[in-house]
């Protein structure tokens, strides 16, 4: 299987001022040496709490953010620091689906206009063909052609998300990045949208990076799962392996906190303390060690690296 996207040691730091008159700016490392491979046709899930850098990673891959360091290879071509005009061709191949379906659709455009936009800008099909392409795209996301004249506010949330997906697949991308695409939907609708993703993946052979904080969704949907904490990947493994044999304490805490009706797994009960400004910081050590329930003597002083514990299962923890 070939790698479609390789990310090597990407770093992204944001500089934040506490107030307008603050002359010293604080820096937050949103992505800290993240490396990932995306295999063609697979679904890679990314989980983590809010603020851990999931969305930043997604946006950096689409190059909405410019990484500070590192390298990104798309089909072995370096796209890390491409200029805007060169990025244009790359962006056709990689599309983004946003979390809030209403906020990501222009309220003054009809559904037809919304889906026509990528067709126009990437000049796909002739002008006369575009209408029929739009109807075909709508059928692909299981909506009828009559939606073409409707406005976003007339649709239900599930239908809006389908429009978002139709717009994303309009340019026939090879990678889709879905940033929490179902978190604002009802459970019955969630399943339908997830199934739509699966059929699209089968039909079009798209690779999907699926960002979510809901572990139970990821479990059923992703082939491989990466767990992020504080801008770092702390564990990455095949979905089965990760859920049945989690190694990193943070992953174990996440899985124990997930609410799911159907689990045959033995449940651990782990409660994580929340971090605040006063909790001790260990700049030289593991970033999780102030909350870790298995903290060892070395943890505050030594930075753990990603170690392979079994085939394709990497963990960033000193205890493993």
């Amino acid at each position: 299987m070939s790698c479609i996207l390789q990310i090597k040691n990407i770093k992204k730091t944001f500089h934040i001022k506490k107030s307008f008159f603050d002359f010293k700016s604080r820096s937050i490392c949103a992505l800290d040496n993240v490396s990932l491979d995306l295999i063609e046709g697979e679904t890679l899930g990314i989980v983590g709490e809010s603020g851990c850098g999931k969305t930043t990673l997604g946006k950096t891959i689409v190059r909405l953010y410019r990484p500070d360091e590192g390298q990104m290879l798309y089909k072995k071509k370096d796209i890390t620091f491409l200029s805007e005009s060169r990025l244009f061709r790359y962006r056709k191949m990689i599309q983004f689906i946003f979390q809030d379906p209403l906020a990501s659709l222009n309220p003054r455009f009809t559904v037809g206009d919304i889906i026509r936009e990528p067709l126009d800008s990437f000049s796909i099909g002739s002008k006369s063909e575009r209408n029929s392409i739009i109807i075909k795209l709508l059928e692909k996301v299981e909506l009828s052609g009559e939606f073409i004249r409707r406005y976003p506010h007339e649709l239900s949330n599930g239908q809006r998300q389908r429009i978002g997906i139709a717009r994303a697949i309009a340019s026939k991308p090879s990678i889709l990045i879905a940033d929490e695409p179902v978190s604002s939907l009802d459970v019955t609708v969630q399943v339908k949208i997830l199934n739509l993703f699966k059929t699209l993946q089968k039909d079009l052979g798209i690779s999907i990076i699926f960002i979510s904080h809901d572990l139970s969704i990821i479990e059923n949907f992703a082939d491989r799962v990466a767990v992020m904490y504080r801008g770092k990947i702390v564990e990455i493994a095949k979905s089965n392996e990760l859920y049945n044999n989690p190694q990193h304490p943070y992953t174990r805490a996440l899985i124990s906190a997930a609410t799911s009706l159907y689990t045959t797994r033995k449940k651990e009960k782990i409660y994580l303390e929340e971090e605040n400004e006063n909790s001790p910081k260990y700049p030289n050590g593991c970033s999780f060690c102030s909350r870790c329930f298995m903290k060892a003597k070395d943890c505050p002083e030594k930075k753990p690296v990603l170690k392979e514990v079994s085939d394709g299962h990497f963990v960033r923890c000193l205890l493993v």
Binding site: A257, T259, Y271, E274
Partner: peptide, 11 residues
């Protein structure tokens, strides 16, 4: 909310 915080609130 995140799952870890959700667990805290449910508790």
């Amino acid at each position: 909310l995140d799952v870890t915080i959700q667990a805290q609130i449910l508790r």
